[in-house]
């Protein structure tokens, strides 16, 4: 019998497998395929103070072993999340984290404060790294001073688990992670999507309405793994790894690189049951390697 439990600060996960924001809706979309209660946690759709229509169509382009998206944080806004969606999903016996985004520090703060009042939401994931919105989003996460400012400001109003999602579109991600840690983050999650682009050469036009978009899927895994390894070496707070994880082997690699837990995103589109398979695969691996606890994997890279 192996122990899959993971502690991320105040969060207790029954296993290290969470789902990534923007790929899992509010969990309900996957109810026909997965017992949501068996997941380590779900991070629900990026939520902002005001409703957002998001970007124009087309918002998606398939790429070799991956995809670009330019959704642009389409969401109903925090008030409708609280009045309509939260009552439906609070039944889940897993960690529900809300991904919080905004255009100004004040918007982040106000949104986080409203979510702080929800009993069944034990944490937020601060999204300072969305590449698809003009103002805010990634603009916060790519410079150290603005990252520290928004993290510190939300910390003042938010007293549960605060995970901060980092952008890979930076020169030195470990430096940003250290800044976020010093500003009071309880954990960091990485990576958000890599800024990319696709062109329809017949039409001589960009494929996405926004020209550039965020790259995700298996194609980004080596980059994500490297960044998780660098950040895990730099910070003391737990690291949650993501970026192209498609199977148990991928998830284990992220934990060996120093992640305490993982998030699965784009792979859910290809196999809606992938999360359950990854959980089972991690368990098999631990048995096969005579390990008793998933915690033994963290940073066990023999380099």
């Amino acid at each position: 019998m192996v122990d899959l439990k993971v502690k991320l600060g105040s969060l207790e996960l029954q296993n290290p497998v969470m789902t990534a924001s923007g790929t899992y809706g509010y969990g309900e979309e996957y109810e026909d395929f997965v017992d949501i209660n068996r997941l380590g946690g779900i991070v629900v759709k990026g939520t902002t103070l005001h409703p957002r229509q998001g970007n124009d169509y087309p918002r998606m382009a398939e790429t070799p072993m991956g995809m670009l998206n330019a959704v642009g944080l389409q969401n109903v806004g925090v008030d409708r999340f609280i009045s309509e969606i939260y009552p439906r999903i609070k039944k889940y016996r897993t960690n529900i984290l809300v991904n919080v985004s905004g255009s100004t520090v004040e918007e982040y703060v106000e949104t986080a404060a409203k979510i702080n009042a929800l009993d069944h939401i034990p944490g937020i994931e601060l999204n300072i790294s969305c590449p698809n919105v003009k103002e805010g989003g990634m603009a916060f996460g790519t410079s150290c001073p603005s990252t520290i400012a928004v993290t510190a400001a939300v910390r003042e109003v938010y007293n549960k688990h605060m995970m901060v999602k980092l952008s890979p579109n930076v020169t030195n991600i470990a430096e940003i992670a250290l800044g976020v840690e010093s500003a009071g983050a309880d954990s960091v999650s990485l990576i958000n999507t890599l800024l990319g682009m696709a062109i329809d050469v017949e039409q001589r036009r960009p494929v996405l309405s926004t020209i550039t978009g965020g790259l995700s899927g298996a194609a980004v895994k080596p980059v994500a793994l490297r960044m998780v390894w660098q950040v895990a070496q730099a910070v003391k707070i737990p690291v949650v790894g993501m970026g192209g994880i498609s199977n148990a082997e991928d998830a284990i690699a992220f934990m060996l690189a120093g992640a305490s837990a993982v998030q699965i995103g784009t792979a859910n589109f290809i196999d809606p049951k992938v999360t359950e398979k990854v959980i089972a695969g991690i368990e098999d691996y631990l048995v096969r390697h005579n390990m008793t606890s998933v915690a033994e994997l963290k940073g066990a890279l023999q380099a």
Partner: peptide
């Protein structure tokens, strides 16, 4: 026939106004 990824309303890629 909009381009889509998930097919189940999770990714919000295939929207139409």
């Amino acid at each position: 026939e909009n381009h889509m990824a998930c097919g189940i309303g999770a990714c919000l890629c295939c929207i139409t106004p």
